[in-house]
Amino acid sequence: MSENEMKIIVFLLRNEEYGVNVEQVRSIERMLPITRVPRTPAFVKGVINLRGVVTPVIDLRERFLFEKNEVTDETRIIIVSVQELEVGLVVDAANDVIDLPLREIVAPPELISGVAAKYLSGVAKWEERLLVLLNLEEVLNQEELHALHDADFSYS
C-alpha cells in the first residue's frame, strides 16, 4: 500500500456500498446473540459478548435510514474502535477490502442515499462503483445518542 492509498473495508447497506478506514476496524463478526438494553434509542440493538468483552451494537440501517433490518446469512457486525469507544455496527454484508487511491475521494454532497453529509467523510468512485465513506466520530456521537434517548422517553 502506498502513501496515496487508504485501505477500506467495504460493506453493504440496502444495496449501497459504504466504506470505513481499516484502521478503525477491529474485527468483522457473524451475527451474535444480542441482549437488548432497555430505554435506549431503537437503533441501539443492545450488547453482545465479544470474546468476554461486553460490546454495544448499533444498527446502521436504522441509524441512517430509519428502517428495520432483516438478519440474513450475510449480516455482519463490524467492530469499530473510535477514540475510546468500541462499538459493533450491524450491516447487511461485508465482504471486500480495497486499496482506495486518495485522489478518488471527494467531499460528500449534502445528502446521499438518505444519509446526512455530517455522517460522511467523503465519497469515492472506485472501479465504476460509488463508495460512501463514513465519518465514524460523528456516527458514534454520544451527545446525539443522549438527545435521541431523551426524545424517545420524554413522555415517561
Binding site: P33, T35, V37, P38, R39, T40, V44, G46, V47, I48, N49, G52, V53, V54, T55, P56, E84, L85, E86, V87, L140, Q142, L145, H146
Partner: peptide, 27 residues
Amino acid sequence: LKSLGHYLSGVFAISGATILGDGQVAL
C-alpha cells in the same frame, strides 16, 4: 460485573452487564 461499554454509559437503571454460563449477556 462488566461495563456496558463507554458508548452506552448512563443507561437508566442499568449499572453494567455480566456474561452468563451459556455465553449470553445479562444486564
